[in-house]
Nucleic acid binder design. Sequence first.
DNA 1: TAAACGATTGAGCAACTATTCAATTAAGGA
DNA 2: TCCTTAATTGAATAGTTGCTCAATCGTTTA
Lengths: 117, 117
Amino acid sequence: MTEDTCLITVINEERIAQARAQMPEEHLLIELAETFKLLGDPTRVKILQALAITELCVCDLAALLEMTSSAISHQLRLLRARGIVRFRKAGKVVYYNLDDSHVQTLVEVSLRHAAEC
Amino acid sequence: MTEDTCLITVINEERIAQARAQMPEEHLLIELAETFKLLGDPTRVKILQALAITELCVCDLAALLEMTSSAISHQLRLLRARGIVRFRKAGKVVYYNLDDSHVQTLVEVSLRHAAEC
DNA sequence: TAAACGATTGAGCAACTATTCAATTAAGGA
DNA sequence: TCCTTAATTGAATAGTTGCTCAATCGTTTA
């Protein structure tokens, strides 16, 4: 991390200034990336899509995705930590729901777009 | 990958059937996850956000994000590969633009939501 | 109370990823 | 032509991640 060429060489100073002025705060962009990263995994996308259709317990999700309940549980923990899913206990069984309608619309919008390609 | 408990134990058979029937095709969900994964990195989100404001060359992006142009170039390659950015050459300088308006609105919508939290 | 079962958790591992570093390409200017 | 510079590329590396496996927790029921 010494002075790299391109930390000095600047070609369009005004544009950089403009971008810098209009860019959202860094922590906001990092937050954003965190959320996208969470959606950026096939298993988690499938879980979210399934929960968008109906409430399911860990075991059902495991059966649906043909994975171990351990693997599912690990992923649900991440989704829980970001408040994307919520759960309710019914005895031994834990049912999961989507808790973030925004994420749901995000997935819907993206799916529509993906389907167009 | 033998017969795991939860590949057999099913609690809500009808719900699983319903989810299975309504779930989008697997390859579509995987595509979706690929796109989200690409957005799920701070550097790439910053690049996209900057390009949403103004056209910039590799060097400018490097200066703006305080990173080496090599690191930026590597990330641009990934974004290019998915058709999210396009470029035009002006002599030695390569200018990058957003090429996917959908991704742009995706980021905008998400930013608005992130800002609300 | 003990056994059974759904779910969670932590350690470990293999696969992946973002950056660095060095080498190379392509274009411009001396 | 040679030198400089913007950009790209490949290899190497440090850090991350998703799954497995085994152990454990909490609840039900025999």
